[in-house]
Design a protein around this nucleic acid. Structure first.
Lengths: 153, 153
DNA sequence: TTGCTCCTCACGTCACGTGAGGTGGC
DNA sequence: TTGCTCCTCACGTCACGTGAGGTGGC
């Protein structure tokens, strides 16, 4: 479903920081759309937007620790959105329709934001704990410096 | 290597938020120590400290997205540290030794902190992008409200 | 024509999940 | 004794990795 077939699978993979095998696998399980119509055995071709999409998917999966099944659900909620965007960019006159599209977007963004913030909080908690441990260790080291021969427990 | 055998594998798993199978697997690949000496076929027994350790491992793996091999490396660097801690709590008189222990700890903590902060930055970047998108969508919605019949592109 | 990347099976691997059949402690 | 959890194989699964053998475009 690429707009223009400019890129090959290896280039897409490199740009998105993954491998051709992963792209084929994602296509196989329906996470990525089948690129255009092609003869069996012929090369897959992609557009720049496909790279963006894949990059985004990998990022969400990696940072949020989602399974491909969860990622698929998230993306299906967005599937509508992607189509709406195209519609949007085609120029939508009806304000009711415009409002629908925007509200869909907001819902999608909100669900992602919730996942991201949950992760952010967990990470921050871990960071805080580590810095505390570091502070403690450093303080003990300073004690050793200032009272080189004494002991305290 | 548990101090006291108070807990069984199922209890440990539940407390750490995982499954017995995972604990056995971690033991199998050498990520967790073999708990005490036991007859083949006998139950594994664990202490409360084992729960803490496992919880910590799962947290690092999950939040940082480490493979078990990477986790093992991180932990081996800490393996020394765990032993040092016991030594420490046993009461170390030699200030040179105390310094060694503390510096080991600091190195270990520093390496973890670096990983955590890298993740934190990626998450924050993602969060920022999402909030920006949300702001844009909200602003477009407001435009629809204030100018219900007009169009701007 | 020579490389290079691509293609499709298909088996391998990592990190477990999930029964199958049996034993052990409140 | 009855449940419950435990045990050890061992095969299944998810998300790819990795050749094996062959075809296609600069």
């Amino acid at each position: 479903m690429s707009d223009e077939g400019e890129l090959r699978i290896g280039e897409v993979a490199k740009l998105a920081g993954t491998t051709p095998r992963t792209i084929r696998y994602y296509e196989e399980i329906g996470l990525l759309p089948v690129p255009g119509t092609r003869q069996p055995g012929a090369h897959r071709t992609y557009a720049a937007t496909d790279v963006d999409r894949l990059t985004e998917l990998l990022r969400l999966k990696d940072l949020l620790g989602l399974t491909l099944e969860e990622l698929k659900e998230l993306v299906e909620a967005e599937g509508a959105r992607a189509e709406l965007r195209r519609e949007w960019q085609g120029g939508v006159d009806d304000p009711v329709r415009r409002r629908q599209i925007l509200e869909q977007s907001l819902t999608y963004i909100a669900s992602q934001l919730e996942l991201v913030r949950r992760r952010r909080d967990e990470i921050k908690k871990l960071e805080t704990e580590l810095t505390k441990r570091r502070t403690r260790a450093k303080s003990l080291l300073r004690d050793l410096d200032s009272e080189p021969a004494s002991r305290q427990r």
